[in-house]
Design a protein around this nucleic acid. Structure first.
Lengths: 271, 271
DNA sequence: GTCAGGGCTCCCCCAGGGGGAGGGTCAAAG
DNA sequence: CTTTGACCCTCCCCCTGGGGGAGCCCTGAC
């Protein structure tokens, strides 16, 4: 009786290991053309070779088996392209993160890392034009851009001039739960209301403040310095973190020139 | 009693999860400054924050914990740079593979994939100047370049002209075990011997032959077509695979113009 | 009929975590 | 000084995408 290729033959043709082929069978990714009901032997057909090779490519791209199965099950070319595009976008993201980590690592390992200076300062109440939302940490950058644009438009429409650099308030849970409240604002004496933009009052507070220099890839280092300062001075953190974009993407295209003031509201403990 | 930061405090400062910190402790990557022998409570110091951040960067680069520990334990800056450089090289490799997979995937998913033509042909005995070695599949490309260069020099020194395009012989175990015998050769009437270069006779054989067009990123597709052809014509493979580089990197910088002839020595089975 | 090579299932292992159970501790508030 | 709630501990199972190996059955060429 002439059956298809044994799993070993198929393995040699596709360069997928026998184990991997069995796993793909189990996962419903690549069902053998025929399975002998008595012996359990898997038999593949030569027509399945191209499918196996497509799977191999997707795996080389790190696509999870679930998604590969989804892609293969999707007949509609548009939907298929969308699934693939989504994964390619993820790859891009990952690449960006890798790039950021490389540059930031280089900076961290440089012998002459200047110590980060932290100072304690009392900030008065400020009125601002703000947009607030609950966001995921991942989408923070995109959200920030849109919100800032909207505030700019609102100020422009109202003919108002900012009284200081833009900034943001970030709830601490954003950093522990990857999701939380965020406010982006521009200080202005008499804030307008338009669309998502609303007047907002930032309360006075005692702040532990430092200035982060350069792109935000390694901003956690400055956060770490603040953490060190706060604990060493037996202070505690109260309320959302403040960032002031002294020099930011609106001012220069060179991220190395960016200056970000980070302020942690603190209070003294009996420690 | 004033002890260091609890694991929760340290987690908030470094943005590493509590679980992850415990794992790093267990792995000897980041030992807490103090561990209470009675309660098992871990206490960290603010001086450990920078270390934690360096670890975070390495992890974002996908460096295994073992290697991070190694890097942190290495005091000598040169040795340290070497370790890091090795990992960055691996990242580059991975990036190349990803790029290759993307282009190859695009090709595979293009609607108009021309069917691959396979023909059966008898190849006569050929004398060649060859370099042979047992290699890993991964290092095949680098090895190939060096060997080919050596053959070129030997022919040039001896004042000989190749009688055909260069080629290679690859034992089947190379593709199943990732390691095996390989021969790279240039056909020539009267082969010289110099260094690793030796005369060699490629035996006559009946070949199933196809021509692969373009870069080698998706050469396994052509191999798959050969596999399909061979099994559908109830043939069997005997001996190492042959590749002839009709148009290769020596001829053009445009990989899309490459032409690689792949020949599988076959014999008829009773099927 | 024999026998090697190859197929089958099942279980354990890896990294680098996440989730949760069950129980002990710490520190601020009453 | 006790309570209480937040925090910490260990231990176990889960995930993905495989690899290694044990123990047993099947196939096919001679």
């Amino acid at each position: 009786m002439h059956r298809g290729l044994t799993i070993g033959d198929f393995s040699r043709i596709t360069h997928l290991s026998v184990r991997t082929l069995r796993r793909y069978h189990e996962a419903g990714l690549l069902e053998p053309e025929e399975v002998d009901p008595y012996t359990g032997y898997r038999y593949y057909s030569t027509a399945q070779v191209p499918t196996a090779q497509v799977i191999r490519r997707f795996r080389e791209l790190g696509m999870p088996l679930r998604e590969i199965r989804e892609v293969l099950a999707t007949a509609d070319p548009d939907a298929r392209a969308a699934l693939i595009g989504r994964h390619l976008a993820r790859l891009e993201d990952e690449l960006d993160r890798t790039r950021a980590a490389v540059t930031s690592l280089r900076r961290l390992l440089e012998p002459a890392v200047p110590p980060i200076e932290v100072e304690l300062r009392v900030e008065p109440t400020t009125t601002v034009a703000a947009v607030r939302a609950t966001i995921d940490l991942k989408e923070a950058n995109a959200w920030y851009g849109g919100a800032m644009e909207e505030i700019d438009r609102a100020l422009h429409t109202a003919g108002l001039t900012p009284s200081g650099p833009p900034g943001g308030l970030y709830g601490n849970e954003l950093f522990t739960e990857e999701r939380g409240d965020a406010v982006v604002f521009v200080p202005v004496a008499d804030p307008p209301a338009a669309g998502r933009v609303h007047p907002f009052v930032i309360p006075a507070a005692e702040l532990a403040v430092t200035v982060h220099r350069g792109p935000h890839d390694d901003i956690d280092v400055s956060y770490g310095a603040l953490g060190t300062y706060v604990t060493e001075h037996t202070l505690a953190v109260a309320g959302p973190v403040r960032e002031n974009y002294l020099v930011g993407p609106r001012d220069t295209d060179n991220p190395d020139a960016w200056r970000t003031e980070i302020g942690w509201p603190v209070f003294r403990t009996t420690g």
